[in-house]
């Protein structure tokens, strides 16, 4: 168990801010897709480069699967975003976010010799924004910030260490 003594309030606050910001990003990504009638994961999947490219291409070619993937992606992003922002089921939300980000990264990793025709706004080598967000979520998944500030605190109770600190 994480000992609050090892973590000062301002350190928790920074972690919670990180959680809210990543949550905001996920939520808006999901909502923007939900309200864009033209959006489909197809262009992203079809660009897939690495060892998952066959699976992704198969998804694109099957309209039913593509629809399922689109729905899963949109609803997943919205649910993860909400969970992170309000601190509800924080750890499962982090893990689900890690899975999605891993898939995004693996589809189009900026490895040497890989050239994606998807437009990118920066310059990346191996590390891109998906990977940075992945690493950030990995950190968050190890700290139950929802039980410090979030609905998890109300539902599952505050961290024991936090109670003892107050006592």
């Amino acid at each position: 168990m994480i000992r609050s003594k090892a973590i000062a309030s301002w350190q928790w606050a920074a972690l919670i801010l990180l959680r809210v910001i990543i949550g905001w990003h996920f939520l808006y990504e999901g909502i923007a897709k939900l309200f864009n009638p033209y959006w489909s994961s197809a262009p992203y999947l079809v660009e897939a480069k690495w060892f998952l490219s066959n699976i992704f291409t198969m998804i694109v070619t099957n309209p039913q699967w593509l629809k399922v993937v689109d729905i899963l992606n949109i609803s997943g992003q919205i649910a993860i975003g909400l969970g992170l922002m309000i601190g509800f089921l924080t750890t499962p939300a982090c893990i689900a976010g890690l899975i999605l980000l891993a898939l995004y990264y693996l589809a189009n990793p900026p490895l040497v010799g890989f050239k994606s025709s998807m437009p990118v706004e920066g310059s990346y080598l191996i590390v891109n924004k998906n990977l940075v967000e992945f690493a950030s979520l990995l950190v968050l998944s190890l700290f139950p910030t929802g039980r410090v500030a979030g609905l998890d605190r109300l539902v599952f109770g505050p961290l024991k260490s936090q109670v003892s600190k107050e006592g």
Binding site: I16, R19, V20, G23, W24, L27, Y28, L82, M85, I86, G87, V148, A149, G150, L151, D152, R153, L154, P158
Partner: peptide, 15 residues
């Protein structure tokens, strides 16, 4: 506890 539980809700409102 309640305050802290709901402390990040304003961000959602802002969103």
């Amino acid at each position: 506890d309640i305050l802290l539980s709901l402390s990040t809700l304003p961000f959602l409102g802002g969103f």
